[in-house]
Nucleic acid binder design. Structure first.
Lengths: 163, 163
DNA sequence: GATCATAACTATGATAATCATAGTGACAAG
DNA sequence: CTTGTCACTATGATTATCATAGTTATGATC
């Protein structure tokens, strides 16, 4: 495609976010990083993206200050990727995406099963459902406040992808 | 590009959302619809997208039940696009994108100016800043609860695009 | 009543991003 | 010294995207 117009300098904040997030690969990689999958091969396997795309997007995320590359082993040299504060702040967006899809974009769900990921408020132990304010204690819910537990169906799908 | 893998049937809700939202054009068009710009030509002008893309994406949004096409004039026949309930529910995501960018993705901002769009809670009149819970009255903030006022810089940019 | 204007699109060709596949370099284990 | 793991890079075919121009339908203007 021809060179698309750059939105990173528009006055509209949604436009600036769209410049980053209007890309399947970026969203999927961020999902993996939030799930704690930091290694290149794991990210590639779980997203289904090719290694060139994963490589290019991770480079970009590092350049934008959203992720950082760390060596988790010296011999052999092995790198992985961690979210920075700027990256962790994207949690609200991904959580809103999750909430929308659980409500409006139906999954190939087993009968009677609940959401694909159950989130529990670490502070008070309440299952928050798809709320942004804890229904148990009224606290706002941000990065680190929630503990997610994938359903058996989601777990099976993830295992199938990495096998 | 080759046929990319379809994520609309994955168990992961973030994946299903990414299938829809991982696309610059979709995000920009949704922004316009939330801003109340419903006409084809206005959407094309404000997003900078070509008419083929706008056409294709609007068709898709209608097919997905996110927008609907309405005739706002019979003679001459003129159509525009409105968000459905499913579409309006995407507000939380766009609002989270706005909040993230206002905080972390810096605008070419005039000195001393605040956010590009000031949001005021309709219920109590409080300027909510980038909060998801009204700092004035504690109410949760969703679609319809907020009144947005673009800054002069953002207004100027919008006028420049449509001229 | 011929031309001009407006709105909502559709059509075409050049360009560039994406995917699938294969390969590389560094090291460790057997 | 062959095999395996991990984090990538390289290549070629495919296809989405952009810029530009054109179409259809109608109303307004000269």
């Amino acid at each position: 495609m021809p060179r698309r117009t750059d939105l990173s300098a528009t006055f509209c904040p949604v436009g600036r976010s769209a410049e980053l997030l209007g890309d399947r690969a970026v969203l999927l990689i961020l999902r993996e990083l939030f799930f704690g999958r930091r290694r290149f091969e794991l990210i590639a396997a779980n997203t289904g993206l090719g290694p060139q795309i994963v490589s290019a997007r991770l480079k970009m995320l590092v350049a934008e200050g959203i992720a950082e590359r760390r060596a988790y082993s010296q011999r052999p040299v092995r790198q992985d990727y961690w979210l920075t504060d700027k990256g962790k702040a994207l949690f609200d967006i991904l959580y809103a995406m999750r909430n929308w899809a659980e409500r409006w974009a139906y999954a190939p769900r087993e009968m009677g099963e609940g959401p694909a990921i159950r989130y529990v408020h670490r502070g008070c132990g309440t299952d928050v459902g798809t709320a942004t304010i804890c229904p148990g204690c009224g606290a706002g819910l941000g990065y680190g406040d929630l503990k997610g537990e994938p359903s058996s169906a989601l777990k099976a799908e993830q295992i199938a992808r990495t096998a």
